[in-house]
Design a protein around this nucleic acid. Structure first.
Lengths: 116, 116
DNA sequence: AGTGTATATGTCATTCGATGATATATGGTG
DNA sequence: CACCATATATCATCGAATGACATATACACT
């Protein structure tokens, strides 16, 4: 059964999954990474971020992992919590990328005819 | 003033605007067109469609126009109501296409590193 | 010691769009 | 006449994003 009927991801959720696709990160690191990833266009609010993380955990698209790297010794703020993509999460990310591709190529087709 | 801060469109809304980019259509025609446009993947419910049309009118992204073509003589069902993209709507459609492009290229960058 | 800043996590009410169910109306076909 | 495709519309509900608020801590500067 090919990963079926996942409803379209919204922009923040997509970026969060994408940010985790390389390596495990903790919340605040995702926040900063997404800002880079989107060329500064997207600045997640913490409400959006932690709300999404909680939801994605429930859905099994991400999971908790311990110690994000060896340099988790002394840092300010509350204790870090690291997250990683699950197998299922990676699948959804690929599906979603394919969906965007379909959307974009449909748009280009139509918008091209406009210039003709 | 460059079209500012339009929140990301969701899939149904995007397809509706895209469908109107070529020519004016009435609601039910949009319904069918979007099904083609998306290779049968998207089947809009009428709640989604007419809800979106009403909202897009309010936002000034589309407008009512009369008689969709000369063949609006005898047809079943309630009287047709045709809609067309406004200037503003076309702008949003272009912005949105650019946003998708950014999203997709960010995804490809990251996902490519995965295979390396 | 006190003040500020960057790091770090979390909750909450509100808003907004999508969804599926339901309703209504009508022309053409079997 | 029953059925179907066409055609528009409303409604309650759900899910995700958002911004405001709250809490905690390490470090730097005065």
């Amino acid at each position: 059964m090919p990963s079926d009927a996942t409803p379209p991801l919204q922009e923040p959720t997509f970026y969060i999954l994408l940010s985790l696709s390389q390596e495990a990160k903790h919340g605040y690191a995702i926040l900063k990474d997404v800002e880079d990833l989107s060329s500064g266009k997207i600045k997640l609010g913490t409400g959006t971020l932690y709300g999404a993380l909680s939801r994605l955990l429930d859905q099994g698209l991400i999971q908790r992992v311990d110690g994000a790297g060896p340099e988790d010794d002394t840092h300010p703020g509350k204790p870090r919590k690291a997250y990683a993509l699950t197998h299922s999460g990676l699948g959804v990310l690929h599906d979603e990328t394919a969906r965007l591709d379909g959307l974009l190529s449909a748009a280009r087709r139509r918008l091209k005819e406009l210039r003709a």
